[in-house]
Nucleic acid binder design. Structure first.
Lengths: 138, 138
DNA sequence: TCAACTTCTGGACTTTGTCAAGAAGTTGAT
DNA sequence: ATCAACTTCTTGACAAAGTCCAGAAGTTGA
């Protein structure tokens, strides 16, 4: 990914140690939860408040530097792969999440028969299944 | 929908007043949260514990009598339209959720390039946007 | 009617996240 | 380098959604 500092400057966001560390943490642990990331950040810069982590994640997501995913029944997760339209595959049994690429060029079912007057801006796809490990354990 | 009592019997589930009432409540309030439904149930049968509501919702969902949807940043919701592959459209601003039908016959992007060894059983699609009311309010 | 099993109740507890107020840091202009 | 204006961070309280547990009650099939 781009240099965190540059990424922030580019968008006119004030640069803080917390934001840089959070950005690095997301980069280093794709699909991490806010808690996971807070731990990583603490390992890097000593301490950070929970609120600062949520603030940073929220701001970064809002400005398109990271992407927030929230699968059913689990805390929100974050990743820095943005803008490439990949989707996610989640194990029902252990919660493990992996990236999947859709058939290239195909946007999944974006044609809605009746949009009920909504202005649609995003389609989020989550595939549910069982991961190899959990399949074996059955 | 089918008679609640019959639906439970068919699946060999013990029939309890709570389950019947929860099933009815889901039927009568599509996209309701556990709390919404608990209120409806109390109106019908007097009292029910929170745990019983969660138990019933969990069991019913597990046996395919209802479907659980969990949009980002909101409590889980339940509906009794099952088995017809419709999807959901959620307002980013007020959280209102409506059903949408995909182009008939098309299963959305179920061809995954690399399934990472997972056994995929469901693709969940959530459309994000702004509802007519919130569009007007801007 | 009875025994075995499952579910329900009630309360404590956990997780995930938000709110608010004051302290500290960041930025751009001087 | 310094200063004012603004934003962010810290701390602690709070809230929502759900889970865990143990004992009471209900359900089912024999």
């Amino acid at each position: 990914m781009l240099d965190p500092l540059e990424s922030l400057r580019e968008r006119g966001l004030p640069v803080t140690a917390q934001r840089i560390a959070v950005l690095r943490a997301v980069s280093g642990r794709p699909h991490g939860t806010a808690d996971d990331l807070a731990e990583d950040v603490r390992r890097e810069i000593g301490t950070i408040s929970r609120q600062a982590v949520y603030n940073a994640l929220g701001t970064l997501a809002e400005h398109g530097l990271i992407r927030r995913i929230q699968p059913s029944g689990s805390a929100a997760r974050y990743e820095d792969r943005v803008g490439d339209n990949h989707q996610h595959l989640v194990c029902r049994s252990c919660g493990k999440m992996v990236d999947v690429d859709c058939a290239p060029g195909e946007t999944p079912c974006l044609d809605v028969v009746d949009d009920a007057g909504y202005e649609i801006d995003e389609a989020e796809v989550v595939y549910w299944g069982t991961c190899p490990k959990c399949l074996k354990a059955r």
